[in-house]
């Protein structure tokens, strides 16, 4: 029952705006000049720069990322391969205490890089259950869909650690960029007290300019665009609402760990 059509409130509203702007109320105005039909020179240069990035440039970006993480309490660690990431996650899972209740469990995305961590097996040694957030089958019917979603929601709420990857990471601001898709719920990076993200170092970009140049013009990313919900996450949740004192862990994760695999 989606309202696909213009509604009367919209027609009236837009007419009034046109009048206020001094235009004829019923003539739709040209919009094309406001947008771009092809990438600008700057966009092309940015794309070029990203594609040409050599190992030493990656290294430099990684260092920028580590630096930018420090003032915002984001722990960034470079690791030579995924086995190290698994070990690091294991250590955190063993050391850290759950914030709500006693039992430890972990929610992890279904994602090619996260799958390679073999978390279910690895954490079995600590007897910590890992809930994988698989995509929900689209044609399985309403009741099944609802039940599956409720189950995943409950598992994520119960988990003290959420493990995700990200689409990109922006070095200048230490920002994880995540687009939402089936199997990769955004709540896994939000509801658990500790968020662990694992990325490959070729996912590091310099800044938002590079990101937007890719999302707008690169054929690999353009079709998906920003998805229905794109998140930027720069460090743990924080607030300064009580006497301007900085406190971490307002509503989102209290800790964020980023493991960058440099294989």
């Amino acid at each position: 029952m989606r309202e696909k059509m213009k509604t009367p409130d919209q027609t009236q509203f837009i007419r009034r705006i046109r009048t206020a702007l001094g235009h004829a109320p019923d003539v739709t105005r040209e919009a094309r000049h406001l947008f771009a039909e092809s990438p600008s020179d700057e966009d092309l240069q940015l794309q070029e720069r990203i594609h040409r990035r050599a190992a030493e440039d990656r290294q430099a970006l990684l260092e920028r990322l580590i630096e930018a993480g420090k003032p915002i309490n984001l722990n960034v660690t470079a690791l030579p391969d995924v086995a190290y990431a698994t070990a690091a996650i294991l250590r955190l899972a063993a050391e850290k205490k759950p914030e709500w209740g006693e039992a430890k469990s972990i929610a992890a995305w279904r994602h090619p890089l996260i799958d390679r961590l073999n978390l279910v097996e690895a954490l079995d040694r600590l007897q910590i259950p890992v809930h994988l957030t698989g995509p929900i089958p689209v044609d399985a019917g309403r009741a099944f869909d609802q039940a599956e979603r409720e189950r995943q929601r409950a598992e994520i709420i119960a988990s003290f650690i959420g493990v995700t990857s990200a689409d990109f990471c922006l070095a200048d601001t230490a920002t994880l960029v995540m687009r939402t898709r089936p199997g990769q719920p955004r709540s896994a990076a939000l509801v658990p007290s500790i968020h662990i993200a694992v990325i490959h170092w070729d996912q590091i970009l310099a800044d938002m300019k590079e990101l937007f140049a890719l999302l707008r013009w690169d054929e690999r990313y353009r079709p998906e665009g920003l998805s229905s919900y794109m998140s930027f996450i720069s460090g743990p949740s924080k607030t300064a609402d009580i006497e301007a004192t900085m406190v971490h862990g307002a509503h989102g994760p209290r800790e964020v760990h980023l493991f960058v695999v440099t294989e």
Binding site: T133, P135, I136, P137, V138, E148, R149, Q152, R153, I156, T180, R181, P182, G183, P185, R186, S187, L226, S227, S228, Y229, M230, S231, F232
Partner: peptide
């Protein structure tokens, strides 16, 4: 956050 619409089919939250 960049929000473009509700949860899509196959997604578990939103």
């Amino acid at each position: 956050s960049y929000i473009g619409g509700p949860r899509r089919p196959g997604e578990s939250d939103g």
